[in-house]
Design a protein around this nucleic acid. Structure first.
Length: 225
DNA sequence: AGCACA
């Protein structure tokens, strides 16, 4: 079955994922990596025997999914090339938003709970992430949306008095940290290097908008290759 | 390889 047979879908299906990665970390990493392509509604990963090594990322836009399928194809994710296709069906969070969600047969016993949920009347409950790159559903303005993932981060809008020691304190908290590079002649910017793109993405997500002074929310993007 | 929504 050719992957081209599957029609475009705002959800992508990823396989060949390193099965050693724990579920929550995996979801965070996928979120970080794919939020470059658009707003993400949900990330689904299960560790059941049938579903380990696979995941779904649900975008708000089909175009974001299309870009992700093309650009992240074979991306070395935890040492294994990602295989990405469109998902075969709509994700629950999408049908729920559309109002076309139907409970699967095996969950029929739980209809009562579904009723209760329906009465809560939520039009849409987007991603379930705490430290996500969105606020009230808006992407954090950071201007890196076009830059492909890179293990080196580019930091802007730093107060001029920032030292590399200060940045090290912040960035070394995240795994894979290697070094800070600042350029004397160019105050207000810095480069931060991580072991790989996944780790740099996580740090980016975590420190995006971090304020060293109230006037200076830092802008973190991937460095140009 | 394996298409679900713990």
């Amino acid at each position: 079955m050719l992957t081209a047979d599957i029609p475009p879908n705002q959800s992508i299906y990823i396989q060949n994922i390193n099965e050693k990665i724990n579920k929550e970390e995996l979801k965070r990493s996928l979120y970080c990596l794919f939020s470059n392509f658009g707003r993400i509604l949900d990330v689904i990963a299960l560790k059941t025997p049938k579903l380990r090594g696979q995941a779904w990322v649900v975008f708000t836009e089909v175009t974001a999914a299309s870009n992700a399928v093309r650009q992240m194809q074979n991306f070395p994710f935890y040492d294994k090339p990602m295989r990405i296709q469109y998902a075969k069906s709509k994700s629950d969070c999408v049908t729920k938003a559309e109002g076309t969600f139907v409970t699967r047969e095996k969950k029929i016993k739980q209809e009562e709970k579904v009723e209760r949920k329906r009465q809560a009347g939520e039009s849409q409950q987007p991603n379930s992430y705490n430290g996500a790159a969105t606020q009230n559903g808006r992407p954090v303005p950071s201007g890196q949306d076009t830059m492909p993932p890179n293990n080196i981060l580019f930091i802007q809008n730093l107060p001029v008095e920032t030292t590399s020691m200060m940045l090290q304190l912040l960035f070394k908290q995240y795994p894979g940290f290697k070094e800070i590079r600042m350029i004397e002649a160019k105050p207000g910017i810095a480069f931060v290097e991580y072991e790989d793109d996944v780790q740099s993405s996580i740090a980016m997500e975590a420190l995006q908008g971090f304020k060293i002074t109230p006037q200076n929310p830092m802008v973190v993007s991937f460095a140009k290759k």
